[in-house]
Simulated scan of single mutants.
Amino acid sequence: MTQMTPPGWHPDPGHSGKGPAQERWWDGGQWTGHVRAAPGAVRRRGLRIGVGVVTGAVVLAAIGGGVYLLGEGDGGRPGTAASSPSGAPELPGAPDGGGKDGGRGGDEGGGQDGDGQERGARPPTEPGFATDVAAGISLPVPKGWKGTSGMVGAGLTTGEHPCPGDTAETCVRGGVFSAPAAAVKLSAENPEEAARKDIAVNAKESYGGKSYGKITSHEVLKSETVTVADGKGYVVRWKVVTEKGDDGYVESLVFPSPTSKDMLVVVRSGFDINEDAPKLSVLDEITGGIKAASGGAGGAGGAA
């Protein structure tokens, strides 16, 4: 790591290689003692959306295939560009204290829960919504869906089933996952640029790989501005044709955080094209129901 590397969760340089992979917090100048399970290690225990896997920091499944929270590739790995003494912009979700101990091994100063989150880093919840604390938003949980809040990222999933290309893995018929754009290493000047960049990554992580095979073709269904949580965003939606199993719809939605206008939020979605999958109208309803996170929270994360 160098001084040019932004603060955030990165592969632990002191990890011995034995046991699950882990990430360590880089505060912008040196390694701290805070560690957590790497999403790549956690996701293998989780669900897949289309093909996407939900991340341990959010819901043990992926961000529309890739969130946060999402995804199979490094580009979908959750993280955060939280504050450091060097003056990086502050995002919720950074480990408390951010101690500059330069530690490189073990769990010193940074314990974890069984789900891979830092102890004490419990996200607030709100009935009927899944809250993404870092992004400052809440996603509405449709009836019959599962919603999970996170300090960095939030997710919605429905319709678990064996993945067509790898029945040892579990896929879901529909999933929607959020994260700050910086957390999935999506860099752009504005929502349109970010959404156009992100859609191909989302499609690959949702419906590429061994679970669905490669994507053989895609069709652009939507590419337009949209209002989300009172902010002007941009959405790109593709229909993708897969080599194995069902084809799917993928969508990348990017908009300014309602709590921090300088922060872009990305919401990745993936729906199978199958009679057991949710209709696209549900995705539009979710988009229309996204709102600023409530400060007072209590009790979401389950089916609405």
Rank of each mutant, 00 (worst) to 15 (best):
T225V: 06
G174V: 07
F255Y: 15
G174S: 07
G66Q: 08
S294M: 01
Q30M: 14
G159F: 03
V133K: 05
F255G: 10
A130W: 10
Y234Q: 04
G233H: 01
G40R: 06
G52S: 06
M151H: 02
A203M: 11
D12S: 05
D96K: 14
G50E: 02
A135M: 05
C171V: 01
F129Y: 15
T216Y: 02
K214H: 06
V141R: 12
R24N: 03
G93C: 00
S223P: 03
I199H: 10
P95A: 03
T167R: 07
M1C: 12
G87N: 07
G40Q: 10
R268D: 14
P39W: 14
G245K: 05
T125E: 14
K279C: 04
G114S: 14
I199D: 04
V35W: 05
F129S: 11
H34W: 05
V266R: 15
G29R: 13
A168T: 14
G93I: 00
S86K: 13
D74F: 12
P20V: 01
D272M: 07
K214N: 09
V184I: 15
G111Q: 08
G46Y: 06
G110W: 02
G19C: 08
G165S: 08
V54G: 15
V67E: 00
R237G: 01
I290P: 13
G93R: 06
V236G: 11
K279W: 01
S257A: 13
G301T: 10
D107K: 02
A229G: 02
R43D: 00
S83D: 10
G213P: 01
P13Q: 09
N202T: 15
K143D: 13
A94R: 15
R77Y: 10
P256D: 05
D230S: 15
G295S: 09
P256L: 08
G65H: 06
G97S: 04
N202V: 12
K146G: 08
A134Q: 07
G147Q: 11
G295H: 02
V241C: 04
T148I: 10
D107N: 11
A62V: 13
P256T: 11
G136N: 00
K291L: 01
T2E: 01
R237P: 00
G289M: 03
I290W: 03
L186N: 04
V59A: 15
K146P: 00
R196F: 02
D115V: 11
P142I: 02
E189Q: 08
A229P: 09
Q22H: 04
V228Q: 07
L47P: 02
A57R: 12
G105L: 09
A121L: 13
W238G: 04
E160N: 07
G14K: 01
A300H: 12
E251Y: 00
H10N: 12
F271G: 10
L186P: 06
G75R: 13
A277F: 05
P7V: 07
G109I: 03
I273R: 09
A94M: 08
T167K: 11
S187R: 08
W31N: 04
G66N: 05
G29V: 14
R43V: 09
E193I: 08
S223I: 03
V235R: 12
A182I: 14
W26E: 07
V250F: 08
P6V: 12
D247F: 03
G213E: 00
G71C: 05
G175E: 06
Q3L: 11
H15D: 14
A300G: 14
D74I: 15
A135P: 02
D246N: 13
E108H: 13
V228F: 02
G150E: 01
K18G: 14
D276H: 15
G144C: 04
G248C: 03
E192T: 09
